[in-house]
């Protein structure tokens, strides 16, 4: 029988989900000029966070599609090192604005939480 996740595990899942979309925007924002492809985003997410977010890489693609639909990301294509044409994501003007706003909100949340400790 499947064991129900404990409080700590459910909390971590919820936090991760909320943070992931922001993390993707942050990574794309770091590659403003040249853009970054899906696999590159997965690699950076793993390396820069030491796997803290425990992301299954396949779940990044629905998020990337969502961010495109919201017009926060644009896509252009380029030939990958292994041959096939891959999508390269870049931040739109709206994406840049939203990313900056979310950064301010997150900083503010961190600051207030720090005061609570």
């Amino acid at each position: 029988m499947k064991k129900a996740p404990n409080f700590e595990d459910s909390w971590k899942v919820e936090i991760r989900r909320g943070v992931l979309q922001y993390a993707v925007l942050a990574i794309v924002s770091r590659h403003k000029e040249e853009g970054i492809h899906g696999y590159g985003i997965a690699r950076e997410l793993e390396e820069k966070t030491d796997g803290l977010l425990e992301v299954k890489e396949g779940t990044l693609y629905p998020i990337l599609h969502r961010l495109r639909k919201e017009r926060l990301l644009n896509v252009r294509t380029e030939k990958s090192e292994t041959g096939p044409v891959r999508k390269v994501y870049v931040l739109t003007g709206d994406g840049d604005r939203v990313y900056r706003e979310l950064t301010v909100i997150l900083d503010s949340i961190n600051e207030k939480l720090e005061a609570l400790r």
């Binding site: 899906g38 997965a42 396949g58 629905p62 599609h65 041959g83």
Partner: peptide, 17 residues
């Protein structure tokens, strides 16, 4: 279909990496 194609490219890049 679009997403499946991206997954395919991701696998090919991650595998050769």
């Amino acid at each position: 279909e679009d997403m499946l194609e991206e997954l395919r490219i991701h696998i090919s890049e991650a595998f050769s990496d």
